[in-house]
């Protein structure tokens, strides 16, 4: 059976390149593209989807915000995160949402194809996840919600804006913000930004 694949990524070159790989190397015919969280939700409502290849950062939010909703509405969809973001920082967060496939965009082509094949064949064995050399990263210990809010903090948003964007109370945001500072041992946004730059957290 042909999988119905959606690629969600905000760069059209990345989507097209991925589509090309899927069509030529893995012979997948049904590949759709979306470029934002919003479009993704619309596409999911319209068409059937078996496999979702999902970037982390979009212009209108992050994958951390949409994955719980997708899990609730479409529990059967298989999800693979495909991102420049570091595996060691984000993969654990996504595991908590029952997303076990995490492919780094910087992995070489051959290994990537093998990994994607495993994903499309619904292999239950996630243990063949790619072992790579990781740097110790102070952001690894952040919980999903904290990573979600970290993204907005690094982008210079104020507590009120974040509360509005995520539909949460300002006190929740303040608490999480405090926890992020504690866990990363920083005191100001500037320090947090510097640390993020040093440890390759993009935003």
């Amino acid at each position: 059976m042909q999988p119905n694949i959606i690629i969600a990524d905000d760069h059209s070159m990345v989507r097209k390149g991925m589509k090309m790989l899927l069509r030529t190397q893995l012979n997948c015919k049904n590949v759709n593209e979306v470029s934002s969280c919003n479009e993704l939700m619309i596409e999911l409502r319209k068409k059937e989807c078996s496999h979702l290849i999902l970037d982390v950062i979009f212009s209108d939010g992050t994958a951390l915000e949409v994955v719980p909703t997708i899990r609730k509405l479409y529990p059967a969809i298989k999800i693979m995160i495909f991102s420049m973001q570091l595996v060691e920082v984000y993969a654990d967060a996504f595991k908590q949402y029952n997303v076990h496939y995490y492919l780094s965009k910087s992995l070489n082509e051959e290994k990537s194809l093998k990994y994607i094949t495993g994903f499309l064949n619904n292999e239950q064995n996630h243990s063949h996840s790619v072992k790579e050399l990781h740097q110790k990263n102070p952001f690894t210990i952040l919980a999903p919600r904290e990573l979600e809010i970290l993204h907005y903090l690094l982008n210079g948003h104020h507590t009120n804006d974040i509360a509005n964007a995520l539909n949460l109370s300002t006190s929740t945001i303040s608490t999480v913000k405090k926890r992020i500072f504690e866990k990363t041992e920083t005191a100001t946004i500037t320090q947090l930004l510097e640390l993020a730059m040093l440890y390759n957290i993009s935003f």
């Binding site: 070159m13 990345v14 097209k16 390149g17 991925m18 090309m20 082509e109």
Partner: peptide
């Protein structure tokens, strides 16, 4: 990341 995918494509 776009450059990587230009290469891959």
């Amino acid at each position: 990341s776009p450059l990587r995918f230009v290469h891959i494509a």
